[in-house]
């Protein structure tokens, strides 16, 4: 299949600047966590559960330890295309966890939570490209649901480059074919809190990728914002009805 046809269509029928079907919900698992969310970016689907803030078990010994945010990702074997490769993926998942911790340590107001732990766990239900962005978006929502204080939203998306055309929100097939970067943006600003490039990309193209990536992140932020407000109103009405 043509990755990007001369007529300007991608293999799944989208144009260069179109985001996949994005769906999100918060407070999906209210009984088993302090905050939870569900995010769908196309066929990539993740659930995020947040526990905390809670007392750190090791706080007695290391009173000033600052890294109190932990992220774990689990991926059931039916998710990955090649079922046997799970062991290899393990390292990759560790890597993703580190990126996520680094990103959210900057955005959660950590000084409000000394000597406590916030533990985030993600379950990947299905995988079709853009795993890291989905995790970022899901964590943002779940943290908000848990009422943890943050400076702003972080929304994330990936952008690839086909020849000279940037392509927004790559699926799995496109990720395999193109070099791409993943970026996370703070709120409606142009502040970038996450930028990951695991391939080569020429410097001249970086600017246009960032530009379209930021637009994409803002679009996702708006959808997440709508969901938060919808849910907020729902809760509010429940309280007032009582």
């Amino acid at each position: 299949m043509e990755v990007y046809s001369p007529e300007g269509l991608r293999a799944d029928g989208r144009r260069w600047n179109e985001v996949r079907n994005f769906k999100c919900h918060i407070n999906t698992h209210q009984n088993s966590s302090d905050g939870s969310s569900y995010v769908e970016m196309g066929n990539t689907k993740v659930v995020c559960l947040v526990s905390g803030p809670m007392e750190s078990p090791s706080s007695g010994r290391k009173p000033n330890s600052s890294s109190n945010l932990t992220v774990s990702i689990s991926m059931p074997s039916f998710v990955s295309n090649s079922r046997k490769k799970f062991k290899k993926n393990d390292k990759r998942i560790q890597e993703l966890c580190i990126f996520l911790v680094k990103t959210f340590e900057q955005i959660v107001i950590m000084k409000n939570y000394p000597r406590t732990i916030i533990s985030i766990s993600i379950v990947v239900l299905s995988q079709d490209g853009g795993l890291l962005p989905s995790c970022v978006n899901a964590i943002t929502l779940a943290l908000i649901d848990a009422g943890i204080s943050m400076y702003d939203y972080v929304s994330s998306i990936n952008v690839g480059l086909y020849d000279t055309t940037p392509l927004l929100d790559l699926n799995h097939l496109e990720e395999n074919d193109l070099s791409f970067l993943t970026l996370g943006v703070v709120g409606k600003s142009e502040k970038i809190s996450l930028l990951l490039l695991e391939d080569k990309l020429s410097l001249d193209n970086l600017e246009k990728l960032l530009a379209i990536g930021i637009v994409g992140c803002h679009r996702i932020r708006d959808i997440m914002d709508q969901e938060i407000r919808r849910h907020g109103n729902l809760r509010l009405s429940k309280i007032t009805n009582k």
Binding site: D12, G13, R14, E18, R20, N21, G42, N43, N81, D128, N171, L173
Partner: peptide
């Protein structure tokens, strides 16, 4: 846009896997 799903059967090394891909109209 309208999104639909295309289901493929991918056969590799003898085994068969079901692959679902989005298809935008």
């Amino acid at each position: 846009l309208t999104v639909t799903q295309k289901v493929f059967v991918r056969s590799r090394n003898g085994g068969a896997t079901k692959v679902v891909r989005e298809h935008y109209l």
